[in-house]
Design a protein around this nucleic acid. Sequence first.
DNA 1: ATACATGCAAACACTTTGCAGCACA
DNA 2: TGTGCTGCAAAGTGTTTGCATGTAT
Lengths: 129, 129
Amino acid sequence: MQDNIKSRNTLQRKIILEAVRNMKNHPDAEMIYEKISETNPLISKATVYRNLKLLAKQGHILHIPIPDGADCFDFNCSPHYHIKCKKCNRVFDVDMPYQKNLCSNIVNDKGFIIESHQIVFSGLCPDCK
Amino acid sequence: MQDNIKSRNTLQRKIILEAVRNMKNHPDAEMIYEKISETNPLISKATVYRNLKLLAKQGHILHIPIPDGADCFDFNCSPHYHIKCKKCNRVFDVDMPYQKNLCSNIVNDKGFIIESHQIVFSGLCPDCK
DNA sequence: ATACATGCAAACACTTTGCAGCACA
DNA sequence: TGTGCTGCAAAGTGTTTGCATGTAT
């Protein structure tokens, strides 16, 4: 949680944060925008994008960049992995412990500073298989 | 290698494949297009995209979807991992053995069929750190 | 009062697609 | 000869940005 980024507490931001917290299925920006529009049709898509980015930077939500698709957001901020279904394109949590030491498996780092990693599994979800 | 996909052996396709094989630095479609344009300015960008997709499907090159950026391609087809520099955005190979058994670490697969995984590290390259 | 934030539309980066003509097998 | 394939331009998707206005602190 990084609350030292100066920002205001706007109503829009609160609504967007609440929306992500209530959607427990890894929504992307579009889905969040649609959800919010149901009750708050005046909030613009640009504001949704801007706030999702900021909230993720502040650590209030988790930003999950998805290869080959729109980025997702997650109310669960602890680092964890995801699987994307090849058929329905939905994203699910993977029940695998976070590999804290994965970086140390790297044989020869050639001088890189490795900060983080991301694993995305690909396959078929129970509904699609 | 999946040569059972019916396709013709066009000159454009050969040129594109050779270009990727000669570029050993994980080029994206745009970079490949630029490179080809130097010697073959008549090949269109759509053709580059179409052929990169096909060549990857056939297994002649590796398609690396990059979160937060343009997809890259790699002449090295054996599965391996990559690191993306946060500053210069370049993509490098990571010298870590392929984790064949990573899927078996998943505690409770809830009925997913897991086919593959992708790890992308993030950090700073030797030039940028 | 003064930044930061908003809504809107336009721009952006990356990629795919419709179509008419072309060329490999 | 037929069906892939090409070039072109246009459209599509996901996201960011410039600007004038609004608002939290």
